[in-house]
Design a protein around this nucleic acid. Structure first.
Lengths: 185, 185
DNA sequence: TGCAAAAGCGGAGAGTGTCTCCGTATAGTC
DNA sequence: GACTATACGGAGACACTCTCCGCTTTTGCA
């Protein structure tokens, strides 16, 4: 890759990240990204063929933090319920860091060929690790995909409605208790 | 209202309902609705000033069925858990009848002035009735708004990812057990 | 029945998005 | 310094929501 191309690519991602964080995915147009970055639309689209592809690059960095969060939450010296709740809160917080991301990523779960596929895998594996770590304390039929979807749903609602942390926590507590419940007859 | 206007209005809603049910809200353009109904765009927009307003009219009919569903589920002669689960399933089924509706309605919860405001009120009251009916069996801190959001989140994910009924049921079981759990210390 | 006013109709087009095409400019190479 | 692959920029194609306004139809009334 040519030096100017590399420079432009980095600048695009940086500008897009700031804009999306400030205004939300939907409210940022590709034109605005290009203008703010001081480049032409053609250049932008060569680097990122779709708006989703750009979005994917923007959220790349914090997808890496997911596994750290799993480790931290699971190593806490507290009951399983608290560890699970901590993880769900961390996970929700990460998903809602960028406006509009939660719904898009959650909708891509299990969809082959989506631009967010790699991230979905990361998240699924992270939730699987949580399930493994908490072992028999969870309901026996819980699945990583299910957990991703349920928490993703909460995150999407929280993001969309800009809910205060207490409201999100309260919803996650319901989920937590649901995950911990034994399978009913 | 003039006779031709009434005729056109009814036809628009009918056409829009069929199209949205078949292709999903996002995939149906206002132009397509107008063309299919055999009218001009101006006529369409006189009757429904925005696409959301049209959508609201389309889902009008089944919003009325919500209260029936509450009655039916609460009158069942089964344990509280099964009644709650039945209600959540019915509610989810209604929300996902029209593609794209669940996410839009859930996002409008608590937003003053949204075109879906009346429906949100209906849903909130319905969930409140369920909470009242199940009385002390639910966790003490449960709220109708919270229930609406949690189930709406599940419905939105189910709708987006076109999940099979078993997967939706499994997620609702987690929610059910969460709602039934006593408040943890 | 005939007429005027009110009500409604239709479609061109404004405004805004995503994304494409292609002539032009420039970084890297010998 | 020249040559070529690579990258750039921006006009514009296409799709969508929504507006404006001249024209047509319905309706109430004599």
């Amino acid at each position: 890759m040519r030096a100017d191309a590399r420079r432009n690519r980095d600048r695009i991602v940086e500008v897009a990240r700031d804009l999306i964080r400030a205004k939300g995915y939907d409210a940022v147009s590709m034109d605005e990204v290009a203008r703010t970055a001081g480049i032409g639309a053609g250049t932008l689209y060569r680097h990122f063929p779709t708006k989703d592809a750009l979005h994917d690059a923007v959220i790349e960095a914090w997808a890496d933090k997911v596994n750290e969060a799993v480790d931290q939450a699971m190593e806490l010296d507290v009951p399983a319920r608290d560890r699970l709740l901590q993880w769900l809160k961390d996970y929700t917080a990460m998903l809602t860091t960028h406006q509009g991301a939660a719904a898009r990523i959650t909708a891509s779960l299990g969809v082959a060929g989506s631009p967010y596929e790699a991230k979905c895998q990361t998240y699924l594996q992270a939730n699987q690790r949580v399930i493994d770590a908490l072992g028999g304390q969870l309901r026996p039929d819980v699945q990583a995909m299910q957990m991703c979807r349920l928490v993703g749903g909460v995150a999407a609602v929280a993001d969309n409605s800009e809910l205060p942390p207490e409201a999100v926590s309260a919803m996650l507590e319901v989920l937590t208790d649901g995950f911990l419940a034994p399978k009913a007859a």
